[in-house]
Computed example of a mutant assay.
Amino acid sequence: MDPRDGLPPPGHLVQHRQEGRIPGTHPLPGISGAGVTVGCDRPAPVRQAPARQAPARHPGPDPDPRLEIAGLTALSTCDWPGRLVATVFLQGCPWRCGYCHNPELLDPRTPGRVPWPRVIDLLRRRRGLLDGLVFSGGEPTRQPGLATAMEVVRELGFGVGLHTAGAYPGRLAAVLPLVDWVGLDVKALPDGYPAVTGIGSGADKAFASLRLVLDAGVEHEVRVSVDPALHTEGGVWRLVELLTRSGVRRIVLQQVRRPDGSASAPLPVLIAPPRGVRVRRAE
């Protein structure tokens, strides 16, 4: 691996955004520049990223989308199941979930620490080795330069993955034609959103975004972080039923971590989940 990637020392683990924090690691993957994501499900066989037609652009230097990038993970097997990817973590999120393990990413006023040219340099050096780039956060759709960044990534020949909680359905609709895979966080049943996110209107936006993803036909995974302080056994089962009826093809239940980094006590649904639903434990 190239030292320019800023990889952490051997044995340093950097955590996947959607899982709980690994004890003894920095909560921001790649806050010093980049990292390696490990500690997740065994990846499926790596396949070539889907080929979508990128929008035509005039020739010239790559534009700078002016993203506020808090961290860069140079290699991940978790952030897009079945793919080897790099991941950028974009600053800012409008929600305040009590179990959030990346609180440093919440404040949109915090400037980014990773310049976009460093991301492009990494991708150019990893042609043939990486399948794509995942835009994670925070909430990446809040940044106006996201579509431009995705276009650049596609023109370099890489697939585009997106992690989102669906907080901005209008902005999500604008970038979905540029996305090959979506990891969508659904927080709770609609009436449970205020308790989880601290935002009263969150459910309408999240479920509107879910419908956009399903109607677009894009590959997706819906993740539900199960917090025993906020969710009930029956509520999780009803949410899974709602998602299944809506047409979601892949549902993952995730065990959250407490603020001290220890794994929360799992609800029974994480031990014996509904048929076809995967569980991602906070190891």
Score class of each variant (00 low, 15 high):
residue 226 V to P: 06
residue 45 P to T: 12
residue 56 A to M: 12
residue 75 L to Y: 12
residue 245 R to N: 02
residue 212 L to C: 03
residue 249 R to L: 10
residue 266 P to I: 06
residue 78 C to M: 06
residue 235 G to Y: 10
residue 103 P to A: 08
residue 173 A to I: 01
residue 280 R to Q: 15
residue 42 R to S: 12
residue 115 P to K: 04
residue 72 L to N: 05
residue 141 T to G: 03
residue 33 G to F: 04
residue 70 A to S: 14
residue 204 D to W: 00
residue 262 S to F: 00
residue 92 G to Q: 05
residue 215 D to K: 11
residue 154 R to W: 02
residue 252 V to E: 09
residue 237 W to Y: 13
residue 173 A to F: 00
residue 50 P to T: 11
residue 139 E to G: 02
residue 47 R to E: 15
residue 87 T to M: 07
residue 66 R to N: 10
residue 244 T to S: 15
residue 125 R to Q: 12
residue 89 F to E: 00
residue 39 G to N: 11
residue 267 L to Q: 03
residue 38 V to A: 14
residue 85 V to L: 05
residue 37 T to W: 00
residue 109 R to H: 15
residue 8 P to R: 05
residue 211 R to G: 02
residue 36 V to D: 10
residue 236 V to E: 06
residue 159 G to Q: 09
residue 97 C to H: 08
residue 40 C to Q: 05
residue 261 G to V: 03
residue 247 G to F: 06
residue 252 V to R: 10
residue 15 Q to L: 06
residue 93 C to L: 11
residue 11 G to E: 09
residue 109 R to E: 14
residue 40 C to F: 10
residue 118 R to I: 02
residue 85 V to A: 09
residue 96 R to N: 13
residue 163 H to P: 03
residue 13 L to H: 14
residue 74 A to F: 11
residue 91 Q to D: 12
residue 136 S to D: 08
residue 126 R to P: 06
residue 97 C to F: 08
residue 232 T to G: 15
residue 198 G to P: 07
residue 220 H to C: 01
residue 256 V to Y: 05
residue 208 A to P: 01
residue 127 R to H: 12
residue 56 A to V: 15
residue 266 P to V: 08
residue 60 G to E: 02
residue 205 K to G: 00
residue 16 H to E: 14
residue 15 Q to N: 14
residue 180 D to Y: 01
residue 78 C to S: 13
residue 99 Y to M: 07
residue 196 V to D: 07
residue 255 Q to P: 02
residue 48 Q to I: 13
residue 26 H to P: 03
residue 59 P to F: 07
residue 104 E to K: 00
residue 76 S to V: 11
residue 75 L to I: 12
residue 87 T to N: 04
residue 131 D to S: 15
residue 151 E to A: 04
residue 10 P to L: 11
residue 153 V to Y: 02
residue 278 R to G: 06
residue 275 R to P: 06
residue 246 S to F: 04
residue 81 P to F: 10
residue 142 R to T: 15
residue 213 V to H: 02
residue 258 R to H: 14
residue 34 A to P: 10
residue 129 L to Q: 14
residue 26 H to R: 14
residue 39 G to V: 07
residue 221 E to Q: 13
residue 111 P to H: 04
residue 103 P to N: 05
residue 17 R to I: 12
residue 110 T to H: 08
residue 270 L to I: 08
residue 232 T to I: 09
residue 56 A to H: 11
residue 182 V to S: 01
residue 144 P to W: 03
residue 193 Y to R: 01
residue 229 A to Y: 11
residue 158 F to G: 02
residue 104 E to A: 14
residue 102 N to F: 01
residue 98 G to E: 13
residue 85 V to I: 14
residue 117 P to A: 11
residue 199 I to Q: 13
residue 228 P to L: 08
residue 54 A to I: 08
residue 88 V to S: 04
residue 23 P to R: 12
residue 159 G to A: 10
residue 151 E to H: 00
residue 18 Q to S: 14
residue 65 P to L: 05
residue 23 P to W: 07
residue 83 R to C: 08
residue 30 G to Y: 06
residue 189 L to E: 10
residue 171 R to C: 04
residue 22 I to V: 15
residue 104 E to G: 15
residue 121 D to A: 15
residue 39 G to R: 05
residue 262 S to M: 01
residue 190 P to V: 06
residue 52 R to N: 09
residue 262 S to L: 03
residue 196 V to Y: 03
residue 119 V to R: 05
residue 213 V to M: 03
residue 174 A to W: 01
residue 37 T to D: 13
residue 82 G to A: 04
residue 216 A to R: 14
residue 64 D to P: 02
residue 116 W to A: 09
residue 7 L to V: 12
residue 91 Q to G: 09
residue 111 P to S: 05
residue 209 S to G: 04
residue 279 V to L: 11
